[in-house]
Deep mutational scan, measured.
Amino acid sequence: VKVFRALYTFEPRTPDELYFEEGDIIYITDMSDTNWWKGTSKGRTGLIPSNYVAEQ
């Protein structure tokens, strides 16, 4: 598990995607895809765009 911080707010387009706000901490559990990672924030899990976060 790696810890990342959201650089921007992300509004999901599908139920599989995770909503998060700029500054949120996201725990990444799967980075197997280059563009979409699986992450958890505020008790919810979903896909996030990798270019919206920076490693802490």
Rank of each mutant, 00 (worst) to 15 (best):
Y19Q: 11
D30E: 11
K2M: 10
R44N: 10
G39Y: 02
A6C: 05
K42P: 02
W36C: 07
L47Y: 10
T45N: 08
I26F: 03
F10V: 07
I26H: 00
N35L: 15
I26V: 08
E21I: 08
E22F: 07
R13H: 10
T29G: 05
R5M: 13
E21H: 09
K42A: 13
L7W: 04
G46R: 01
D30Q: 06
E55N: 07
T14A: 11
T9E: 04
G43T: 05
N35H: 15
T14V: 08
E22L: 10
S32M: 08
M31H: 06
W37I: 02
D16E: 14
K42W: 06
F20T: 01
T34I: 13
D24K: 00
P49R: 06
L18V: 06
N51P: 06
I25T: 10
D30C: 06
R5W: 10
T40V: 13
F20N: 00
G46F: 03
R13V: 09
Y8Q: 11
S50Y: 06
A54E: 15
D24Q: 06
E11Q: 14
Y27P: 00
Q56M: 15
V1M: 13
P49C: 08
G23D: 05
W37R: 01
E11V: 15
T29A: 06
A54V: 15
L7K: 09
E11W: 15
K42Q: 13
E17Q: 15
F20H: 00
D16W: 13
I28A: 02
E17Y: 11
E21F: 07
T34M: 14
E55A: 13
S41H: 12
F10E: 00
I48Y: 01
D24T: 06
E11N: 15
E11G: 04
T9Q: 06
T9H: 08
E55R: 09
Y52D: 03
F10I: 04
S41M: 12
D16T: 09
L47R: 08
T34Y: 09
F10H: 13
S32E: 09
Y52C: 12
A6Q: 01
E17H: 13
W36P: 00
Q56F: 15
T14K: 11
E11L: 15
I48E: 01
D24R: 01
E55C: 08
D24W: 13
K42R: 14
P15M: 09
D33R: 06
T29Q: 09
